[in-house]
Amino acid sequence: MSEIVVDGESLPFTEGQTVAAALVAAGRVAWRTTRVGRRPRGVFCGIGVCFDCLLTIDGAGGQRACLVPARPGMTVTTEEGDDE
């Protein structure tokens, strides 16, 4: 199985899965907190429309986890609010 690195920890995934699918497969449904109410959020629409599942991938912010295919060695940073 291949691995991505999420907040410094290895996360296995099956080739072909998106970053969101890899996170959900590992039991994580939330990886972001909202700007105003600091509420936890993760995948909601799963098809790139709602933007709830945003995270940083290889240094690029504002990436939809549900759209980006996981690739071995990819570095994923979950967004603690939008103010990092």
């Binding site: 969101a20 993760g42 909601f44 629409c45």
Partner: peptide, 24 residues
């Protein structure tokens, strides 16, 4: 409805069909 683990039905289906993953 904004709690993690609440998804659209399409989102549940997309995770299944696209990634073979069940969200719960």
């Amino acid at each position: 409805w904004d709690l993690p683990g609440v998804l659209t039905v399409g989102g549940l289906q997309a995770l299944l069909k696209g990634g073979g993953v069940a969200a719960g």
